[in-house]
Structures are given as structure tokens and as C-alpha cells.
């Protein structure tokens, strides 16, 4: 499902050259549940962004769903993100001016192909499953962090993606809620067969994943 071959990523911070990733080779299979671990600045987030096509590698190849992504144009990449990848961020990244329901439905607005389901009904179903259906018409700043993250997960799921990429999903919420969020992700993997990649620096979070990839200074140091 995901294959990175000799991926390098360098960028410039003023005069300083930063080598965020150095010849990274990984493969993640369908229905896998993978934790990417590393300390802050290790390059794990950069890795996730490259997997999620939010960023491009300086060199190397990224294969996603058996496609060489370097050969895709902007609209093909956008479609791939829209239909197949759901993102969950540490900062939730909800759009403040939209209600919970509107946030969840937003990806459907960008769908280029006709959807096989009613996005509104499915969004409400997801909110119900996550226990926040009574918050559907609230704005993000009026609900708790846990509820915001659930909204974000519902948004990530609205297009029924094959892959969920979560960047420190429990980083901004208390541990109890964090635990609930992790259970939610687990169940998505187990019940719906969604491939999940979680980037984290917390070992408790990593404990729950099926497989772990350790990143240090832009290099994969361990995989098991």
C-alpha cells in the first residue's frame, strides 16, 4: 500500500541546511497499524507528510496504492488525498467558521467523482458512533479538545479512506480522552480494516500499534 524508496528530504532554514530524512525505505501493508516513533525533530512528522502527499521528497520515490506519486499532477494527488487518505492532526485543524457537521462534510465538497453515499447522513452516523451527534451544530471553539479530535477523525473518515495518517493525535488532549481516541483508531483498524499510521513520541501510544518504526535524525533506526 505504501512504499518509500530511498527518500531524502532536505530543506533550508535560513542558511542552515536541514536533512530531515536520509534514504528512508519503508513499506506499509494494507490493513496495517503502524506507529512511527521518534523524539521531536527526528523527522517523523516529515515522514508522515511525505506519505500523505502533503510534502514532496527531495529525492527518492513514493508509491501509494501502487502508483508512483511523482508522476501524478496536482489534481490527481488532490483526488488521492481526498478519496483515500484521512488526516488527523495534533492541532485538530478544524475550520473554525464551520460547524462540527460542516467540518466533517467538507472533504465531500471536494470530491470530483459522484459519491456512492449521502455525505450528510454518513457524517451524522459517524458523529453518532463517536458520541458527539449532539454537537453537530456547534462550532469547534465551543466543544472540548476530545470532541474536536473526534470531529477531526470523523472528517478523516467521511470519504471512507483506505489510509488514516495521525500526527500526535493525543498530543493536545488529556490522557483519558487520549486513551479513548486511541481505542477509536484501533477499532477503525480492526473493524473497518483501515490502514493506520500514527506518528508519536509517546511510548504508551506506540504500545497499541501492531508495528513500529523508529526514526532518529532522519534515519530509520529500527523496525519491528
Amino acid at each position: 500500500m505504501i512504499k518509500l524508496k530511498n527518500v531524502d528530504k532536505t530543506y533550508w532554514l535560513g542558511e542552515e541546511k536541514v536533512e530531515a530524512l536520509k534514504s528512508v525505505n519503508i513499506e506499509i501493508k494494507d490493513k496495517d497499524y503502524v506507529g512511527i516513533l521518534g523524539s521531536s525533530g527526528s523527522g517523523k512528522s516529515t515522514l508522515m507528510h511525505i506519505i500523505g502527499l502533503l510534502d514532496q521528497p527531495t529525492s527518492g520515490a513514493v508509491y501509494l496504492f501502487d502508483k508512483d506519486t511523482s508522476k501524478l499532477n496536482d489534481s490527481e494527488i488532490s483526488s488521492l488525498r481526498n478519496e483515500n487518505i484521512g488526516f488527523v492532526f495534533q492541532q485538530f485543524n478544524l475550520i473554525e467558521k464551520f460547524s462540527v457537521l460542516e467540518n466533517v462534510m467538507l472533504p465531500a465538497q471536494y470530491a470530483k467523482n459522484k459519491l456512492s453515499f449521502n455525505p450528510r447522513e454518513y457524517a451524522l452516523e459517524l458523529l453518532e458512533r463517536f458520541g458527539i451527534e449532539d454537537r453537530a451544530n456547534f462550532y469547534p471553539n465551543k466543544i472540548s479538545g476530545g470532541q474536536q479530535q473526534r470531529t477531526a477523525i470523523a472528517r478523516a473518515l467521511i470519504m471512507k479512506p483506505k489510509l488514516i495518517l495521525a500526527d500526535e493525535p493525543t498530543g493536545n488532549i488529556d490522557s483519558k480522552t487520549g486513551d479513548e481516541i486511541m481505542k477509536l483508531l484501533e477499532s477503525l483498524n480492526k473493524d473497518l480494516g483501515v490502514t493506520i499510521v500514527v506518528v508519536t513520541h509517546e511510548s504508551e501510544v506506540a504500545e497499541r500499534t501492531k508495528r513500529k518504526i523508529y526514526v532518529k535524525d532522519g534515519v530509520i533506526v529500527d523496525k519491528y
Partner: peptide, 16 residues
């Protein structure tokens, strides 16, 4: 800008 980034992440094309 952040909103634009979020929209791009969930599938908005440059054209959108």
C-alpha cells in the same frame, strides 16, 4: 493560510 492548508490536505486542488 492555515485554512487553505487544511482544505488542501482534505483534497482541495489548487484550482479549487
Amino acid at each position: 493560510t492555515k485554512e487553505i492548508g487544511i482544505r488542501r490536505a482534505i483534497g482541495a486542488t489548487k484550482k479549487d
